[in-house]
């Protein structure tokens, strides 16, 4: 162990104002980037599921769930 006490560790031999910001910014970038990437992937999967539910509802027989009348020929335009 290079330090004798917690205070000595936090003080970094008098270089605390340099060592801690450098380490803090680096770790914040790494942790923040990782969390952001995982959140982004979850968001994309959620979006995908929503789109899929909509597609499934569209494919269901119309008699089962009567909805607003869609004029003939305009069905494709909604895709």
């Amino acid at each position: 162990m290079a330090f004798e006490s917690l205070n000595a560790f936090l003080n970094m031999g008098g270089y605390a104002p340099y060592v801690w910001p450098a380490w803090g910014v680096t770790l914040a970038v790494l942790v923040g980037g990782g969390l952001q990437a995982v959140a982004e992937h979850r968001r994309r999967l959620r979006e995908l599921r929503r789109r899929q539910r909509r597609a499934a509802a569209d494919a269901a027989p119309r008699e089962a769930a009567p909805r607003k009348a869609v004029p003939r020929g305009s069905h494709d335009a909604r895709a």
């Binding site: 340099y18 060592v19 680096t26």
Partner: peptide, 21 residues
């Protein structure tokens, strides 16, 4: 790097920035 590496004989503990830089 922060706890166990020895301090540099010239730069002291400021050299621990090396480990992220």
């Amino acid at each position: 790097a922060l706890l166990f590496a020895p301090a540099d004989y010239q730069q002291g503990d400021s050299f621990r920035i090396l480990y992220v830089h």
